[in-house]
Design a protein around this nucleic acid. Structure first.
Length: 237
RNA sequence: GGCGUAUAU
């Protein structure tokens, strides 16, 4: 099965999703049982083909062989249904899962935010923490985006406090989310403080700051910052 | 044990 899985995974990775699904079928025709890895890759293939129906078929197959308790499969199903806008299905999978990890929670939170359900994402984030699940950089990125979209400065500040608790304020990914959140909440000064504190600035954090200036119609600041960025030898993208 | 899942502009 691992040989087949390698074929399936490679096909998906190289954008040959159709072929990946063919391999899944072929391995079964040859009497080889797909593993959790096969199914995760197949679901990913369905998502990249934008084929929800095929994804549902794979889901049914997964349920038949009793593999829907696999953590990775559950997480991938949440992602697939969420990205197809089937939030109810994503939530149903979430509810059914026996074990959840930080990816499970983050995947659902991420989809809620993308669908304009920022308030629900905040509730879910709170539940996650109450159950003792520690958010990671990606979780913080998503939840800060929720605060930025609303915008919700007070909630954003509370999340910021948690970021500091976990010593993630200097993480480039979290930092750019903080910058984005503060500038979106109309507090560009706070965004600048985060930026200034960063010892290693990357194109991502610079972009977040530039976007803030643009949003606040500070054209001159944008140009100044851009020149500064070039002086530091950072490649704009 | 490894491989497969969430992630900004």
């Amino acid at each position: 099965a691992s040989t087949w899985n390698a074929l399936i995974a490679m096909s998906v990775e190289h954008g040959c999703a159709k072929q990946a699904l063919e391999y899944l079928q072929k391995m079964q025709n040859e009497g080889i049982k797909p593993t959790a890895v096969s199914f995760v890759c197949a679901l990913k293939a369905c998502l990249s083909l934008n084929d929800l129906e095929e994804g549902q078929k794979v889901h049914t197959q997964i349920a038949k062989v009793g593999m829907d308790s696999d953590l990775y499969i559950g997480n991938t199903l949440i992602d697939m249904y969420g990205k197809k806008g089937c939030l109810m299905d994503a939530f149903a999978v979430f509810e059914m899962m026996q074990k959840r990890d930080v990816v499970t929670w983050t995947a659902l939170i991420s989809r809620l935010v993308h669908h304009g359900l920022e308030l629900d994402s905040l509730v879910l984030f709170e539940q996650m923490r109450q159950q003792g699940m520690k958010p990671n950089q990606i979780t913080f990125g998503c939840i800060l985006k929720a605060c930025a979209n609303l915008p919700a400065l007070e909630q954003g500040k509370q999340v910021h406090a948690l970021v500091i608790e976990q010593d993630l304020e200097l993480d480039w990914y979290v930092a750019s989310a903080l910058i984005d959140m503060y500038s979106n909440c109309g507090t560009l000064d706070r965004a600048c403080v985060i930026f200034e504190r960063l010892p290693h600035k990357s194109v991502v954090t610079w972009n977040a700051l530039l976007a803030g200036y643009v949003q606040h119609d500070l054209g001159l600041k944008v140009l100044q910052a851009f020149r500064h960025l070039e002086q530091e030898g950072i490649e704009p993208d």
